[in-house]
Design a protein around this nucleic acid. Structure first.
Lengths: 224, 224
DNA sequence: AATATATTCAATAGAATTATTGAACAAAGT
DNA sequence: ACTTTGTTCAATAATTCTATTGAATATATT
């Protein structure tokens, strides 16, 4: 870190950022932050860790330059420092998927028959959506939907899905998406809807990757 | 890691990969490996750490799935597991450059007036090189050059540069490159050549990024 | 000013990571 | 078989990281 070798000093800096990424809780926090700004308490609740622990992890991320804190009333809101952080997380995900066998094991064990779901990509969705052939379903909680969502998407949070099946078409393909590639929401939504006879597939990526690709995002006007 | 929550399990796997990146020595090893396969001893020498320590770091990288080992005679050769690792390292570099102030401080302190060197990008180099306006200079050691280099590049290792100035044109722009964005070789080459009155600039990236962009690479035939 | 809420700080014990040392191992040459 | 060379293993002490706990701080509300 404080060596006189400039290259080593630089690598030490890169290493500090990598170290900030080297804990599951922090990666999960970053995934939620990729959806938008959030305060400490809600992040702690979402990731199911104590507030003090979430606070410490968030400060670690801040020290590494990955997130930025902002005071709002008596809560502190964190957000990603940079959209390139999403790129970095994506690269980390891809390398891990490609080279760590354990990932396949976990997916095979929990997400039954992931492959049979045949996830659909950005481009495929754009093509079909242009032709009006698809209903896009956002299964995230309403607050996240309001902060930004795919064009013409319908929002039915996963919890309400069973009670609102009548809002979805039986004669048209449905594409469900949620926070990111491994967010369980879309997986579960696909499973539920299939059981009810819907023609449904999962979007390969989530909203952050969609935004990163420069694709359009709608936002509710009433957004504060 | 062995929780029953699939999302947490996956993030734990991603975190293990990030942890493998969380040490300066390992990042430096990866940078050299991005140039091509190498054995433990040469990597230890290049990074100026003990062989035992290099071995341990390399094994850590292997366990994380980032590199692959192969026995060759009585030495063990390591290589990157995947070209996506280069993408990951690049993303880590970009995020760190953008958000960690310390990086600017280090660059300002050691690489005098980095900005005044006005590094040239892939695309710019391609354009000029097509017009035959540029001499491309590879300042890496001969063995690395032989394993792959930019088209029509001239190889003069940094150490020999002062003695071989007569091989370079005074009336044409020279673009120097080396291993990667922060490899000191190109910086120093530019400085030396400027002092001798050459019109020289530095390529923004190194060979691994060039290859990753899908651009052509030449290789010596005699390469084993 | 007093109270409530949200966050951070400080202290702690247990766990993990680091570089170094010297021994152990495997392949090649003599 | 023996030696040499290149690599890995095992043990170690110093350092760092982690989650938890309860106290301290900052902002808004009454």
């Amino acid at each position: 870190m404080s060596t006189d070798n400039p290259k080593k000093s630089l690598f030490a800096q890169f290493a500090l950022v990598a170290k900030a990424l080297s804990h599951g809780n922090r990666l999960e926090l970053l995934e939620f932050l990729a959806q938008g700004e959030r305060n400490v308490e809600s992040l702690a609740r979402l990731t199911d860790i104590s507030v003090a622990n979430a606070s410490q992890h968030l400060q670690r991320l801040q020290r590494a330059g990955l997130v930025i804190a902002r005071r709002d009333g008596h809560s502190v809101c964190y957000r990603l420092a940079d959209e390139k952080v999403v790129t970095l997380l994506g690269a980390l995900r891809v390398v891990t998927e490609n080279n760590v066998a354990e990932v396949d094991r976990i997916i095979a064990g929990y997400f039954t028959s992931k492959d049979s779901f045949e996830p659909i990509s950005h481009d495929q969705l754009l093509n079909r959506s242009r032709e009006g052939l698809v209903t896009v379903l956002d299964v995230r909680p309403k607050e996240e939907f309001d902060a930004g969502h795919l064009p013409d998407a319908v929002n039915i949070p996963l919890k309400e899905l069973e009670n609102r099946l009548n809002e979805l078409p039986k004669d048209q393909e449905i594409v469900a998406y949620c926070r990111g590639s491994y967010c369980v929401l879309a997986f579960e939504a696909v499973e539920k809807l299939r059981n009810h006879g819907f023609d449904v597939r999962r979007l390969e990526e989530g909203l952050p990757e969609w935004k990163l690709a420069g694709l359009p995002v709608e936002r509710e006007r009433k957004n504060i």
